[in-house]
Design a binder for these strands. Sequence first.
DNA 1: GTATATTGATGCCTTCTAGTTATCACCGAT
DNA 2: ATCGGTGATAACTAGAAGGCATCAATATAC
Lengths: 300, 300
Amino acid sequence: MQTGLRRLHYFQQLASDLNFRQAAVKLGITQPALSRAINLLEDDVGTRLLERDNREVRLTLAGESFLRGCERVMSALDGAVSQACKVADGQAGQLTVGYTDTAISGLLPDFIRCLRIALPEVTLHLKQAYSQQQKEWLDDGKLDIAFMTGPSESDNHASLDFQHDRFIVILPVEHPAAKIRSLNLEHLAEYPFVMGDPIHWQVYNAHFLRLCQAVGFTPDIVQSAPDSRGIVGMVACGMGISVQTESLGKQGDPRITFRRLNGVTDRVVTQAVWNTRFSQPVRDKTIQHLKAWMVDSDAV
Amino acid sequence: MQTGLRRLHYFQQLASDLNFRQAAVKLGITQPALSRAINLLEDDVGTRLLERDNREVRLTLAGESFLRGCERVMSALDGAVSQACKVADGQAGQLTVGYTDTAISGLLPDFIRCLRIALPEVTLHLKQAYSQQQKEWLDDGKLDIAFMTGPSESDNHASLDFQHDRFIVILPVEHPAAKIRSLNLEHLAEYPFVMGDPIHWQVYNAHFLRLCQAVGFTPDIVQSAPDSRGIVGMVACGMGISVQTESLGKQGDPRITFRRLNGVTDRVVTQAVWNTRFSQPVRDKTIQHLKAWMVDSDAV
DNA sequence: GTATATTGATGCCTTCTAGTTATCACCGAT
DNA sequence: ATCGGTGATAACTAGAAGGCATCAATATAC
């Protein structure tokens, strides 16, 4: 089949008009050209598609079948082209998004919900992972956007501050510090702490330790857990208290309570991070939407 | 999109090799020709499909999408061509078959069963109708093959004798004639008859009347029914007896019985009839199979 | 660091496909 | 018999597609 798509189009028009001259006019060519094109098409297909004599033209049964086939070919082609353009423009395709505990407990679900409406033809893949892991995945191309605890340092990465979390204290409801009206970090110096495990929570824990040292104590960390759910669980067990981001304070366990930390102005910044070395139109479109969304939600 | 299928094929090969020279060799063209073809394709599609620099070629995301689209286009085209050839050869398509009571009660189901295995891609439409009706439908093109009581007289029709039925008598089990050992038509002269209605059973009834007159009586027809089931039912009711084709003797009603008619050598011929003015490859293939099938089943 | 090999892109020329014009053969209607 | 319509055919022409030679950029070898 060396025949071009042009001939298929000619055949479609001819099948609809059943008149060579008329079809040729609509196609913007002359009748002999159409005659020859159809002959060549029939040679290629290997069977007669039209029965023609000097007074009428009609489709053979094979021609009817081939006509339906042509429509499928044409629509497949249209689909391929328009889909490719959409993919190039970021309106269709795949997007793999990484996120942390803090992001998924905070603003991320609102944004994702908004994104799914804005880009309905994009298939989203969400992967929970520690910030460090997400960084590696960004480099490997396994992740298009990471929502991770910043700052990101790599030259290949661009980022956008997405969420700013205050520090809060998580306490068992019966804990003595829960009764203090205006709670400072200093009030907590004497109590045992539960924190995230040192390997994956490296950056966060270092930040917390700096805060403690700034007010003159080193916390007594008696337990560590791999994720926020584990930390909250341990606090609920009464094994200690913890300092976490305010987004995690939404977890509704009746055995625990949350308190603002006065005197601590630091924020934990969750950033949207992406790898500028990979070209990914859907990701770029997503970043655009993210910027617009942040302006919108700030305005609210 | 004025681009030919050739370019899609070039793109597929290039996408698989990711190397212009190598792909060009496999395609039997030179590298510059391929370079230009791909550029023109990208212009047509409206977006870049391949990221290329001096050391490597790789598909863009849009290119990956378009590649999948190309495969769909190509397989749609292959399908269209091969399906058209099958239709032209009679291996695929539609076949509308008309049949009479006698045909469907006789050999037709065996043949149809065989046909469905031989031509699995043909969709069969079966329509029961009187012979006269089938003739008209053949002329209108509403029927591809009729299995009807012959002979057919039209010049446009070709036919093949399909089934030869002896005449049999249908009697209520308690009927006095049921006790006669060797039954002749003459034995039935005194009894009331149930026959097919005069409009649709015209040819058959005329045949029957000739048989009766040959042995010197005119039957007393007291009831008529539109179809064989009705006739058999009326006989079961005891309203009369009937003379029918032996194929109808397969109906297993316990209240009736069947007897050979001695001395009657005539046969009712059921023919396969088709309209030679329409070209219908599936029908032609079916006739071929029918001829072969008749030789086979005669041999058994 | 230079030389060499390999990559895809470009310019010019050739080839062949596809289109145009002119004409034919055939049929139905007037 | 003529006229108006059909599709097919032949000869010619224009434009797309391919080939050849070459370029620019990069990677590899020594």
